[in-house]
Design a protein around this nucleic acid. Structure first.
Lengths: 250, 250
DNA sequence: GGGTGTAATTCTGTATACAGGATTTTACTA
DNA sequence: TAGTAAAATCCTGTATACAGAATTACACCC
């Protein structure tokens, strides 16, 4: 489960993760050159990655201006949550319909991880795991398109939380997850849907007051944490920002 | 409602339409050079268009082989229909919730167009209008993400029909559309959902026996019908297939 | 001091070059 | 004649060049 990614996917994945974990706050500029230098690839590939992320709603890339991490409006946020509720309800139904005992173990294992991260105060990890719980459900539903759409809205929700939510509020849901798992295990569709709806309502509710923590920070530094390239694979054909010097060290 | 498209979008749109109308049967090769010559743009842009269409599930583009119009498996087809049912049910609810009298007129107008096309035996147009009915509903739901996802699955369904359906069977649904409109107009959500489910069940059911009508045909000829560029805008920087001669006239 | 027009700079849009893969053709062997 | 290896060709992966749009910096004026 590793060798199938193209170079574009690698960049995509790194950026996606960075955005989801709110390491790149909404509105952050993403200049093609700089990303290219970071990922050791040409603008051609960076561009493809950005296009992909734009189609997922994680990046804004208006014609002829620098792409940025998306800043969804409140209206868009509402839409995303609306779709998400619809998808997750159906996913719950599907998962229950094809329930197998392994599912319970799998999900409970995950919730335990969430719990651990939460206790350890690992905000970044908590956020990621919280999202992955829903993704995992999507996978158990056995429909790859559901899975894809769900992945998309879940990512976008992380972004929305980053933009509108109170800081560090995305990860208070471990208990709710646990209850959902219990309902699934007892194959009680009604209860599970009810819980899921409530859970998502709570998540959405956390999207409230805004606040501009727009502090300047170093794009390269953040991204390097998400680039899994084994160190500076030098000898690469791509020079370090051949076209201009990075402005990060301003 | 015309000047907002980038060049990539133009190509995308043309290809999408051609695929949806089944003018480019599943499995048709789409070499970047040839498309570039057709659309008067470089491979760079063609590539972006193909990537987009791949993400919509209309094109298969495995690494280092020529892209083709997608050939979904039966399993994938099942998945698409499953998601589609979920989305459309919710759309029906939303449309009813925000119902306004204009909606009725709008939809009925559309159904009349479908009827007309059907009578005129315009298969191509019929297929397009049948899809657009659902798109229109998606628009009335007032959620652009629903709209986008719905558009995607509807397109894919056209493709699936092209692959698995009996020829010319995609457009027998005018009456069903009419009934749905009636139910919406009376704001009877239960009935409307019931009808929609039944309708989609019927559409899905038409996806049955396969059949290989794979006859050779001329890619350029088909595409030129979908390229709205005002004639050969010669003087263009792009030569006609500079790298090799077209094989179409084989 | 705050506009504002213009020059400099940054950055995107797009074509194109070149290096391999993938495929097809050709040629040769059993 | 079928099978296969080598060669030719088609086609994609990717970097890069260059043109022009957007943005920023500056100088000038009121």
């Amino acid at each position: 489960m590793s060798k199938k990614s193209t170079r574009v996917d690698v960049a995509c994945q790194a950026l996606r993760q960075a955005i989801i974990e709110q390491a790149l706050p909404p509105g952050t500029k993403l200049p093609e050159d700089e990303l290219g230098a970071q990922f050791r690839m040409s603008r051609t590939l960076v561009r493809a990655a950005l296009a992909q992320l734009q189609s997922e709603g994680l990046v804004d890339a208006p014609p002829r201006r620098t792409a940025t991490t998306a800043k969804p409006t409140l209206e868009e946020a509402r839409e995303v949550f609306e779709v998400r509720r619809t998808l997750e309800r159906e996913v719950v139904r599907l998962v229950i319909a094809r329930w197998r005992p392994e599912f319970g173990a799998e999900l409970e294992g995950h919730v335990r991880k969430e719990e651990a991260a939460r206790k350890a105060g690992e905000a970044r990890v908590s956020i990621r795991l919280a999202g992955e719980f829903h993704i995992k459900l999507g996978e158990l539903a056995g429909n790859s398109l559901f899975r894809r759409y769900l992945g998309e809205v879940v990512s976008r929700c992380s972004l929305i939380l980053a933009l509108y939510g109170r800081p560090h509020s995305a990860d208070c849901a471990v208990n709710e997850h646990r209850e959902i798992v219990a309902a699934l295990r007892s194959r009680n569709a009604e209860a599970a849907i009810e819980l899921m709806d409530h859970h998502l309502g709570a998540v959405e509710h956390r999207a409230l007051l805004d606040q501009d923590r727009d502090a300047q920070f170093d794009l390269g530094a953040v991204l390097s944490r998400y680039t899994e390239t084994a160190e500076t694979g030098n000898g690469s054909k791509i020079a370090r920002l051949p076209r201009r010097k990075t402005r990060a060290a301003k």
